[in-house]
């Protein structure tokens, strides 16, 4: 073992930080090396002197007053911040709770017995929407005085958007009307325009001796595309008895 290596071991030995093997090697070396033996004795004395010097009584400043003052200040500040945070949370939570939910107007279903001159598209600015109007026969068409029975089937839409139908119109149940003047209007606030066709329009059902004539018309007004489907129930002898329209609007 060289003396440089032994010096490190001597320092660690004085601190009682040597393993058994290292201690044996160090002791074997200092028994043969006079300078390292003298160093070992010096280190032991230095060890004691350092401990004594560092643990000598020392004048300590008073820390109680300044620290306590700062601690109490921090405590009050923390208390204030806690209250402020709680108040802010309360306000935000209260706003979220009492925030008015977006109102979805139910789609009106209007059944009118008044004659209408032409099909009217309700709520043209609400997109997407679907308006279906069943109108009576044009003026030039003679309506049979005897009431015709028109069965309307209102089926639930196949999209996730619901079409609100008043309860008096049961789903999937035929609605018997004793008049040919029927206006049925559908409106769906959240329905995409492309899905408008998914709605099941009330389609007149031809009765005995009748047939249904379907026509379509597409118009573009102010960039708004409107598709109007017309269903006409006519007698086999070509007398019109009912007209029903379906209008799909696409922006």
């Amino acid at each position: 073992m060289r003396c440089e290596e032994c010096e490190i071991l001597i320092s660690a030995c004085a601190d009682d930080e040597l393993s058994g093997t290292e201690r044996t090697e160090m002791l074997a070396h200092i028994c043969q090396c006079e300078s390292c033996h003298r160093l070992y004795e010096d280190i032991l004395v230095l060890h004691r002197n350092i401990t004594t010097a560092l643990r000598e009584p020392m004048e300590t400043p008073d820390l109680v007053s300044p620290v306590t003052a700062r601690v109490i200040y921090h405590s009050r500040a923390r208390f204030t911040w806690a209250w402020a945070a709680a108040l802010a949370l309360f306000i935000v939570f209260g706003y979220v709770i009492h925030k008015p939910a977006p109102q979805i107007k139910p789609a009106p279903v209007v059944v009118s017995t008044r004659p209408q001159p032409k099909p009217v598209v309700k709520h043209p600015r609400v997109l997407p929407s679907q308006t279906m109007v069943a109108t009576p026969a044009p003026k030039h068409v003679t309506v049979q005085p005897a009431p015709k029975r028109i069965a309307l089937y209102v089926r639930p839409p196949k999209t996730k958007h619901s079409v609100r139908v008043p309860k008096q119109y049961d789903i999937d149940s035929p609605i018997a009307m004793d008049t040919a003047e029927v206006v049925v209007e559908y409106s769906d606030m959240g329905l995409a325009a492309g899905h408008a066709a998914d709605l099941s329009a009330p389609v007149p059902v031809a009765g005995p001796g009748q047939r249904v004539i379907t026509t379509s018309e597409t118009t573009i007004v102010n960039g708004k595309k409107t598709e109007r489907m017309c269903y006409r129930v006519v007698d086999n002898d070509d007398k019109e008895t009912s007209t029903q329209g379906e209008t799909n609007e696409t922006p």
């Binding site: 300590t60 620290v67 306590t68």
Partner: peptide, 24 residues
């Protein structure tokens, strides 16, 4: 629990060793 003034007792107990270590 909220008695911040009691912390002064801990300061009084440990101010000497803390200061000695910091000073050393």
């Amino acid at each position: 629990k909220g008695k911040a003034e009691m912390f002064g007792e801990l300061v009084a107990r440990y101010q000497t060793p803390v200061f000695r270590l910091a000073f050393s």
